[in-house]
Nucleic acid binder design. Structure first.
Lengths: 203, 203, 203, 203
DNA sequence: TATGAATGAGATTTCATTCAT
DNA sequence: AATGAATGAAATCTCATTCAT
């Protein structure tokens, strides 16, 4: 009884975790409920015990797996004291660190791949993840400009340029890395990005 | 009022063009042959007259639509005379211009989404598109370093950072743009990217 | 003009001959009009110029290819003068010889395979081929019995037993021979059959 | 009023049995999965639950339905004590009896019709059925010759002549019988065959 | 609660037949 | 008369979902 109860509590997340990996690798349409069940070591029927449909499972997966992580960076950042230059470095490194530790590296690829199939989800993701990180970056850039730490850049555009490569790196990690002829690491790419960003490449 | 017309020469490309749009929007698995046929204004049977299977159609689409465009940037660049700084700007702007004019904006999204389903295609794309553009960037960066135009950056990593945002922008254009709360243009983002890249943001 | 006219006359039989080979090998349903057209070195459209449908083509094939051969054995036999024992041998050998020379070895297999798909055709074949040969055999056997050449056999049953192996041999030739571990010839089997039969039924 | 029942163990054989009847009547290509499903009183999907494809179903049908019957005649025969003449009669009668009781009358027609579509299956059938029965016949004929029961026949050829009519009779039963103008029985034909054979080969 | 056998709607694919050229 | 591109009805096969066990 006790054991079953515990299972009942854990099962949904086990299924969602299994689903995430498969959805990232194969996309929504190509991922079969049978595969998810197998990966989660339950039967197909059990998946339907916890989730109404494949679409509902997908949506809940994105929500439940992302929600608890969204505030993390924000909280970490807001408590920080120091120069905007250091803060900018911190945010960039922290994004990758968090996304990787949480096993969410594949989420951006998934959102971009399935955007038009799940518009509300995409809007949610844009609003709650992308735009919030961008806001953080914009506020750092604006403050840095005021404090004369940064040159005359356009914070809104600049924040998007920074996000662009960060999001791309996570997609590259799950999708193209294995087909790349060079053995590279996202960490190195991010450091290079920080370096270019902060110091510029022209003399 | 004819039931149909004989247009053996035009059909295949019309089908491929219809397919590209749908594959980019919906992905491989969610795109139905019936949709492609409808979009190309032919019957389902006609699609199979020119392509062996849905997979074969997908592969030919990527090949036939990409191959004629690959050399374009390369040729344009190789004929250029001027400073490496100007050349770098040129390459970046030209990439976007070419990809947009050719209607290939959606290809990167497609490749990343379907990478594991079509490994040979992904390798082909990496080798013939991504790595070739990267090589061009690397050679510009190396030459610029030698000529003292650029500071002490690492050309290989730097080229990838540049590619990262460029590739991301094209994915954003076809996938996330419509869900973005701000009305932005890739052209502006690219100019900002060039600006940051060339001048740096720290004083 | 003249040449075309000649073609117009020959085409139907060329198509029927091509069809016979393919129908025998692959059966009715698995034989494609495209295959027949290819084999006959015409286009699909041309097949429909001469035959209303695939079924009509099949029926005409059986009729036109068989009709001119049916009377041959009968005529040959009826003109023969000699003992019934010799006549019996003659009929048996002649059946195989005729069927082989006419390229009709595959017809029995075809009729048996497609009997229920083409009942009228099967009835026609039974009536015009099988039963007529059987009648010849029966009349020989009866006469032989009267003339005391043969022992006390039942002509009707005996004729069918003879036919059984003859028909089987032609099916074996086109269907199983190539999968047989021993390299055998129908001619030898027929001689053995004749030998058993005659020592079995002659006094 | 239940929508369906769980009958994992019985389903496969029910489907195979349904398939055998339809394949024998209509051939491989003309038999639709929908027909088999209907006959077996399951849905199309259920057929694919137990069999990978139509071809796989066909192959398994031939194997599973034939294998358990193959040894039956052999065992029955090997335990027999008596003269070779009696044994020969026994084998011939037993073949028909077994094939009929097992509902396998249609298998020879099927094999001959589809031989070239399923070469491995045909080889299997030749090796495991036809050649084994032939071996039994050959050994009886040889032994009978040694024991001076039989005249100077060629056992190998003779065995094939015997098989020829036996196999033909089973094809006739399922295919041509209903189009025959005389109402005959295989049993009578077999007795006639035995009668001719034995007076033909016994001394 | 958990299972996985059974279903059936809908996808891909085939191919006899038509008809513009 | 001849062609073969185009069609669409019908086949095979897939898989999300249901429900008897």
């Amino acid at each position: 009884m006790q054991k079953w109860q515990r299972r009942k509590d854990q099962r949904p997340m086990e299924i969602l975790t299994a689903a995430l990996g498969l959805f990232v690798r194969n996309g929504f349409a190509s991922t079969k409920i049978a595969d998810i069940a197998k990966q989660a070591k339950v039967s197909k029927g059990t998946v339907y015990l916890y989730f109404e449909s494949k679409e509902a499972l997908f949506k809940q997966m994105v929500h439940q797996i992302m929600v608890p992580k969204i505030n993390e960076v924000e909280e970490y950042i807001s408590s920080y004291q120091g120069s905007q230059v250091e803060l900018l470095k911190l945010v960039i490194r922290r994004w990758w660190q968090t996304i990787k530790e949480s096993g969410l590296t594949g989420v951006p690829k998934l959102i971009i791949s399935e955007a038009d199939k799940f518009p509300e989800l995409t809007q949610y993701y844009m609003k709650e993840v992308i735009h919030r990180i961008q806001s953080i970056l914009i506020s750092i850039l604006k403050k840095g400009k005021q404090l004369n730490e940064f040159s005359n850049i356009e914070p809104v555009l600049c924040a998007r340029v920074i996000m662009a490569s960060l999001v791309y790196f996570s997609m590259w990690e799950v999708s193209l890395k294995k087909y790349d002829h060079k053995n590279m690491y996202v960490e190195d790419l991010i450091e290079q990005q920080i370096s270019i960003l902060l110091s510029g490449i022209t003399k």
